[in-house]
Computed example of a mutant assay.
Amino acid sequence: MTTLTAPAPAPRAHLTRWLLRLHRPTLYVWAGLLLAAAVLLLLLRGPLADAAADAWRQYDSCTDWRRCTYDQNAILRYKDWYNYATLAVAAVPFLTAAWAGGAFGKELESGTAKLAWTQSSTPVRWLAVRLAVPAAAVAAGTALLVWLHHLAWAAGDDRIDTAKQWYDVWTFHTNGPTLPALALCGLAAGALTGLLSRRTLPALGLGLLLTGAVWTAVQLLLPRLWPTRTSTGKAFFALPNSSWTVRTGKHAEVPYGDYHPASHYWPLQLTTTALLLAVTALLTLGCFLALRRLTGKTTA
C-alpha cells in the first residue's frame, strides 16, 4: 500500500472538462445509442403501433374466415421491433457496468490514475468526479429511454392483443425507475471491480457478473417486495388478465393463487428502486474504501 502526497486540489470544473475530453468517444457512442433508441421508440408509439392495432381490429372483426384479410406483417413487425427496443433499453445497465469496469481498470493499469493523483487531483476527488459525471449522464439518458419506452408500451396496451403485460420481466423494468437505478448500480459495480482488480479486462467481466448477480437477486425478490393478494375457489379462475399470478396451489381441494393486480405496479416499482439505490450506495461506499486501501490516507 502506498501513501500519496496530496497535490493542490484542482477545480472540479477542470476535472469534469478533462474527464469529458478523455471519454469523448464514449459520449459520442452514448449519444448515438440514445438517438437511435429514441427514434425506434417513437416509431413504436406512433405508426408501428397504429398499424398493428388496425390489423388486430381487422382480425377481431372477421366473420367469414375464408374471406378474412388482415395485415399480419404489421402485427409481427410491431412485436419484433418492440422486443428489440425493449432488450436494447434493458441492456443499458450491463453496458454501463462493462464500461465502468474497463475505464477504471484501464486508468489504474496504465498508471494514468496515479499520475492524476500526484499532479492535478487527490484520489478522493478523482473518484468522486469519475462517479458523479457518468452517473449524471447515465441517469438522464436512461430516464429518457424509460419515458419513451413507457409511451411506446402504452400505445399498444389494450389495442394490440399480443402486447406485453405490465409484469413482463423486461417490460416492467424498462417502463419505470428501476432501470435508471440498476444503471447506477452497474456504474458503481464496474467502478468497484476496476478499483479491486486494477486491470481492464478482468474488471470489465467482473463488473458484468456483479451487475448480473444484482439483477438476478432483484428478480427473485421482486414478487415479495409488496404484499400479494390471495384469491380462492371460483374467484381464482376469474382474475383479470392484467393480474400477475406469482403462486398457485390447492388447500383442502380448493385452488388458490397469490397475485399482484395492476394497481401494484407503482408500489413494486418504487420498492425495487429503493432496494437498488441502497445496493448502489453500498457499492459506492465500497469504491471509496477500496480507494483508501489502495492509496492510504489522503486528503479530500
Rank of each mutant, 00 (worst) to 15 (best):
N175F: 02
A85H: 10
V89N: 09
D161Q: 12
T273P: 10
H149W: 02
L277Y: 03
K297I: 14
R224N: 14
L204Q: 03
V254S: 04
V129Y: 08
Y84P: 07
Q72E: 15
Q219L: 09
R199K: 14
A53V: 12
G207W: 06
K297T: 15
P267D: 04
A281N: 06
A274C: 03
L179S: 01
T193G: 02
W170P: 01
T232D: 07
L87P: 02
T216L: 12
N241H: 12
A274R: 02
N73F: 13
G32E: 07
T26W: 03
R77P: 00
T211F: 01
T3E: 10
V129A: 03
T112Y: 06
S242A: 15
D161R: 12
T2M: 09
A6R: 11
Y59G: 02
A31K: 03
T271L: 01
V133L: 11
W244I: 05
V129H: 01
T112D: 15
W153V: 13
L277T: 07
L282D: 05
W30C: 07
L206P: 10
A213H: 04
H251P: 00
M1N: 09
P202H: 04
L204K: 04
A98L: 15
G141C: 07
T284R: 00
C185N: 13
D71M: 11
I160W: 09
L222Y: 14
T3Y: 01
G176L: 00
Y84I: 15
V218Q: 12
Y84S: 09
V246S: 11
R130L: 03
W215H: 14
T178R: 02
G141K: 01
G205M: 07
L144H: 00
A154D: 15
A235T: 14
F288R: 07
A281M: 04
Y265L: 10
T142M: 02
G156E: 09
Y256V: 03
D168V: 01
V138N: 02
V89Q: 06
G207S: 01
L187Q: 13
A238G: 00
A103I: 08
P223K: 06
T96W: 05
R199Q: 15
G257Q: 07
H14D: 13
P134C: 07
L40N: 12
A8Y: 08
W226P: 03
W99M: 10
L151E: 12
V254E: 13
T211C: 08
L220T: 05
D168M: 01
A103D: 13
D161I: 10
G32M: 05
A213I: 13
